[in-house]
Computed example of a mutant assay.
Amino acid sequence: MKRNFEEMQLGSIELFCLAAELSSFTEAANIAGVTPAAVSRSIARMEERLGVRLFVRTTRQIRLTDGGRRYYEQCHEALLQLREAEREVTGGQAAPVGPLRISAPTPYSHYRLLPLLSQFRQRYPEVTFDVHVSNRNIDFAAESYDIAIRGRTPADSTLIARKLEDAELVLVASPAYLQRVGAPASLDALHQHDCIQFDLPSTGRKIAWLFHDGGKPVEMETKGGYTCSEDVLGIVTLARSGAGITQTYRFIVERELADGSLVELLPQHGGRSRPFFLLFPHARHLPLRLRTFVDFLTEKLITQA
Rank of each mutant, 00 (worst) to 15 (best):
R240P: 05
I252H: 00
T65V: 01
C195W: 06
Y226I: 10
L178R: 04
Q9E: 13
L10E: 12
A208K: 13
C75H: 06
T128A: 12
S144H: 12
E27C: 00
H282Y: 12
V170H: 00
L190K: 07
R162Y: 07
A173F: 11
R101W: 06
T58W: 00
R63E: 15
A20P: 11
T303I: 04
H285R: 14
S103C: 02
F5Y: 14
A20F: 12
E126L: 13
R60C: 04
H76T: 06
Q9W: 10
L114Q: 10
V39K: 05
K163R: 14
E264F: 00
T222C: 15
S174P: 01
K163D: 06
S23K: 14
D139I: 08
A243R: 11
I207R: 14
F140D: 02
I245Q: 03
H110T: 05
Q74N: 04
L80S: 07
S42N: 08
N137Y: 04
V127M: 06
A239S: 12
Y124W: 15
A141D: 10
H269N: 13
S273R: 05
G244F: 02
A239R: 02
L288G: 03
P201G: 03
P115Q: 10
R101L: 02
R60N: 09
F296R: 03
A148D: 02
K300S: 03
I43L: 14
A94L: 09
Y72Q: 05
I252Q: 08
D199A: 15
T26D: 10
P125E: 09
G271D: 07
L79K: 11
V172M: 04
A85C: 14
I160L: 12
